[in-house]
């Protein structure tokens, strides 16, 4: 096989990364950067002894990040006799922390359930991450029980802010974004320490510490306008587990505290759908109308939904919701009145 090792042609990315992982697991004491660049497959072909290897070093920095992103515990060891020295840092992957714990095993039923859980995500990073997790699980060689046929639950992540927010959260990176709060004329810039991203009542929410308010806040991802950017040099220590539960707890409290009272036309789409969803109860008022009580977390989100039902729903309380729905309907009526001169006018507001 020595002929392959002499090859100076381009080594693929996965071969270089695979070789790096193998080399760092095989070493007990760790390898220095110079060791790695001069000997590991994919680097050594481009290494110039005694020369300038700056671009190769940058390559190694990126590779380290990529490997860690995959859950591989790549450690940096300071030399005990020379602490603080950058020059003699050693890199290694402790096998005990790399291997799946020996006492963890999965049954065929559990694997079937995990496969179904993985398919919930059809797009974006959660889909790619689920797929990699399943590849790792498949290494265990367990055959899953028969899948449930004719059943395919799925969730979508439509908001572009999801990816940068969840990545920043894992890295403890403070982010900034423009946030349009309903009722405010223009979006306002927020600086936030992202702590959890949760799907609640069908909407993605960011839970985090607002740096200006110095307090925890919940944001709807759909109201983030424009890009989410990292605030240079601003980091925080991710508080770890329990943040998502705290976020859901706060949303639950909000949900339980908010009740809207609406009348729905009996037999209508609104009656059929609202009475089956987030209903806190209903009472038949008379032949034509049923009173339905709805829990909600966000008045404006509920107003959007209720406006869609047009005359099938009449909001009774709270007054703010009533006027929110009414003004939405007025906006729709206004923007669809007057024959449009197609292709010429500016429609809408």
């Amino acid at each position: 096989m020595s002929s392959t090792t002499e090859k100076t042609s381009r080594v693929s990315v996965e071969e270089r990364l695979f070789s790096l992982v193998l080399a760092l697991i095989a070493t007990e004491i760790g390898l220095t950067k110079a060791d790695i660049l001069s000997t590991v497959q994919g680097y050594r072909q481009r290494y110039v002894p005694g020369g300038n290897n700056a671009s190769l070093e940058r390559q190694f920095e990126r590779d380290k990040d990529d490997i860690r992103e995959l859950g591989i515990p790549l450690e940096v060891v300071e030399p005990p006799d020379d602490p603080g020295s950058n020059h003699h840092l050693r890199y290694r992957i402790p096998k005990g922390l790399y291997d799946l714990p020996a006492d963890v095993s999965f049954t065929a039923d559990e694997l079937m359930l995990l496969k179904l859980a993985a398919t919930v995500w059809r797009e974006g990073s959660l889909s790619a991450e689920s797929r990699r997790a399943m590849t790792k699980l498949n290494a265990l060689g367990i055959d899953a029980s028969d899948p449930v046929l004719g059943y395919s639950p799925s969730l979508r992540v439509r908001e572009a802010s999801f990816e940068p927010l969840s990545k920043a959260m894992d890295r403890g990176q403070v982010v900034a974004f423009l946030y349009l709060k309903p009722g405010e004329a223009a979006p306002r810039r927020r600086q936030v320490e992202p702590r959890a991203v949760v799907l609640y009542d069908g909407r993605w929410h960011l839970f985090g510490t607002d740096r200006d308010a110095a307090a925890n806040r919940t944001f709807l991802l759909s109201r983030i306008a424009g890009p989410v950017v990292a605030v240079p040099g601003a980091t925080f220590v991710p508080p770890g587990e329990g943040q998502a539960q705290e976020a859901i707890g706060e949303l639950d409290a909000l949900w339980n505290a908010n009740i809207a009272s609406v009348s729905v036309q009996s037999g209508s789409d609104a009656a059929v759908r609202l009475s089956k969803r987030h209903s806190a109860g209903s009472v038949r008022l008379h032949e034509l109308d049923t009173a339905v009580y709805l829990h909600y977390t966000d008045l404006n989100v509920l107003a959007d939904e209720l406006a869609g039902f047009g005359p099938e729903v009449l909001v009774r309380s709270p007054a703010a919701l009533r006027s929110a729905v009414r003004s939405r309907l007025i906006a729709v009526r206004e923007s669809h009145t007057d024959a449009p001169t197609i292709g010429l006018t500016e429609e809408g507001e």
Partner: peptide, 24 residues
């Protein structure tokens, strides 16, 4: 050489499966 076991999940891989399970 070097490896003989499946690697652990990353924080995000575990989270993706856990969130999928929460939905189920």
């Amino acid at each position: 050489v070097a490896i003989d076991d499946s690697p652990r999940f990353s924080a995000r891989e575990a989270a993706a499966l856990i969130a999928g399970l929460q939905y189920l």
